[in-house]
Design a protein around this nucleic acid. Structure first.
Length: 571
RNA sequence: CGGGGUGUGGCGCAGCCCGGUAGCGCGCUUGGUUCGGGACCAAGAGGUCGCUGGUUCAAAUCCAGUCGCCCCGACCA
């Protein structure tokens, strides 16, 4: 492609709205332009890249037996009401104003609808159906360029299986395909166990890259490779020892002590003796949660235990429920305030399991109770892992210190189970002639995130550094002296030769910009190789080759340059 | 949705506090000179200062409202 009549509007200056490197560079390299918040136009260079990424994804999806669909973005609202997700998505779902239609944010519903009409026998299964299409989500706050947009490209696939073992197989196939896809795209990624969230289902893993700009938080162990989303991450943090004997309960006067830190310094005791109380509500049932010391409650873990509809209590509720304000609440004598027949559910973080001689609130402002034995004094409804892992805590599998990092989610795989089949009436007859719901899995990849993440991981102060698989062009051919006939004819000749050799070449044949300008543009656009044709070397029958990644330059004889580039691409 | 910022030619910004003919750099057009790291000279084109209303003889500037965009948070299947 000739740069002289291409539309690749590069920018010298950084657009003021862009903060993260990938966003800045995608704008500067003329790949995208914003149209509204979270909505981007892909310009020719950017779209070329999109197509390359899609090609890689398609290749690997086809390799595991995936069949590509093209599905409507316009979905009947009714279909989304059947699965209950019109409500679950809430404001994130775009609604069409003048028809009862929604813009699909994902396609389980449509897939389930098609399956319910056509998959009638176990003989029709398994199936892997996928699509690479635009999805719409009314994100409350789009950000980071294309990383979180309101309209974005997603590869979504859906597995349909007759058995749970089949689902495991489909899930594994996707996990392997995803590793191949991200590896081919040259990304340094890691896989984490994740919460399946409101999507439902049993297992789920996320494919992440570490990045300061990431919206997810993950725990990683550099020693053994343990990695988990903070939502589900665990650590091998020490538990307090149970004392030999439990002392007698005693009320102590703690004026104006509200926080664990204040209590700790007021009493001058080890934080591990303190049990922090948190009050949550599920419907009308109050729930007391005990955490050790200043351990932070992980609400994702709490939701996994109690369901998604738990909420923190508001300060006004506390006094009526417990008789005290926040900071003075505890498990002993807790139900005294409540009317007959209602009582608190008490759940305790595992770290406190079996603990005794603990100090917690007395349900009376300015008082705490000491020597609490959870076994003796409290009717505990259950012990669960509820705490947020902190950086530096020991890895649960090898004991080395954990790191906590920000990460960008590139892909997510779910074992969905039968939820959608049941609500959409997608049943088949098994070998015994018995009706069974189709067992589904769902597997997504953010296409734009691949490009953004690659740039995040591969750029320098001059611009983007593409790897060979993603580079929109293999070679950036630079004509330096457009006024010199011999240089021009050499460059033109090379341009033809590259094309004949089916090498993707971007040819900077502009006659109205200076050499420096062309070099800057070439570094910004970041093709793996630059072939520089200038009069300095043409006279001796040579051209200069610069590798973008290393900046290494080399003189290559004219006659050998096509072969040289071919070899470079294949290596 | 809460907090903060911002809106002035295609891009990046100054001017606003203290009201009085709208400015700079880059880019763009024409001509000329240049040609290995974002060239130079000359002459040009291009702006209802986001929008609406108010105050004033006079508003980019002061006041009120409103919209867009960005950042932090909440949220994030």
């Amino acid at each position: 492609m000739r740069l002289s009549n291409s539309f690749i509007p590069t920018l010298k200056e950084i657009p003021s709205d862009a903060y993260i490197p990938s966003h800045q560079l995608m704008l500067r390299a003329g790949m995208i332009r914003p149209l509204g918040a979270g909505v981007y136009s892909f310009l020719p260079l950017g779209y070329r890249l999109v197509k390359k990424i899609i090609e890689i994804i398609r290749d690997e999806m086809d390799a595991i037996g995936g069949q590509e669909f093209h599905l409507p973005a316009l979905n009947p609202l009714e279909l989304w009401e059947e699965t209950g997700r019109a409500k679950d998505f809430g404001d994130v779902l775009f609604h069409i104003k003048n028809r009862p239609l929604v813009l699909a944010p994902t396609h389980e519903e449509v897939i389930g609808y098609i399956a319910s009409n056509h998959i009638k026998s176990y003989r029709d299964l398994p199936q892997i159906w996928y699509q690479i299409q635009t999805k719409f989500r009314n994100e409350p706050r789009p950000r980071s360029g294309v990383i979180r947009g309101r309209q974005f490209l997603m590869k979504d696939s859906y597995s349909l299986d007759a058995t749970w073992e089949g689902l495991d197989r489909s899930y594994e196939l996707h996990a392997e395909a995803y590793k191949k896809i991200f590896t081919r795209c040259g990304l340094r990624f890691f896989v984490v166990g994740a919460s399946s969230g409101a999507m439902g289902g049993s297992a789920s893993q996320e494919f992440m890259i570490e990045s300061q700009s990431g919206e997810d938080t993950c725990v990683r162990c550099d020693n053994c490779g343990y990695a988990a989303n903070l939502e589900v991450a665990q650590s091998n943090v020490a538990k307090p020892q149970r004392d030999g004997q439990s002392n007698k309960l005693k009320e102590i006067y703690t004026p104006n002590v509200r926080t664990i830190d204040e209590l700790k310094s007021f009493l001058n005791v080890d934080e591990r003796l303190l049990a922090k109380s948190l009050i949550y509500m599920k419907d009308k049932t109050p729930i007391l949660i005990l955490m050790m010391g200043n351990d932070q409650l992980n609400e994702s873990k709490l939701q996994a235990v109690l369901g998604a509809d738990v909420r923190p209590s508001v300060p006004e509720e506390l006094k009526g429920l417990t008789g005290a304000d926040a900071g003075s609440i505890g498990p002993v004598g807790l139900n005294d305030q409540l009317p007959e027949g209602t009582r608190f559910k008490i759940i305790v973080d595992k770290r406190l399991e079996g603990a005794n001689n603990l100090i917690s609130g007395a349900n009376k402002n300015d008082y705490h109770i000491t020597n609490i034995d959870l076994q003796r004094d409290v009717k505990v409804d259950g012990y669960y892992d509820l705490r947020i892992v902190q950086a530096g805590e020991p890895c649960p599998s090898c004991g080395k210190p954990l790191r906590i990092v920000n990460a960008i989610e590139l892909g997510h795989i779910f074992k969905l189970g039968t939820k959608y089949a049941e609500s959409l009436d997608a049943y088949f007859l098994d070998e015994d002639g018995k009706e069974q719901p189709i067992i589904m899995g769902s597997y997504g990849i953010g296409v734009e995130r691949i490009m953004a993440c690659h740039i995040e991981q591969s750029h320098d102060k001059h611009g983007i550094i593409w790897n060979k698989a993603l580079a929109p062009f293999h070679v950036h051919l630079i004509l330096l002296n457009a006024n010199n006939e011999k240089v021009v004819s050499t460059a033109e000749h090379l341009y033809e030769k590259f094309q004949e050799a089916l090498i993707d070449v971007l040819y900077d044949d502009r006659d109205d910009v200076s050499p420096g300008f062309k070099f800057k543009d070439a570094d910004l656009l970041g093709m793996p190789l630059q072939v520089i044709v200038g009069k300095k070397n043409v006279d001796s029958g040579k051209v200069e080759v610069k590798e973008r990644e290393t900046g290494k330059r080399k003189l290559v004889e004219l006659g050998k340059i096509v072969h040289y580039v071919e070899q470079y691409i294949e290596s």
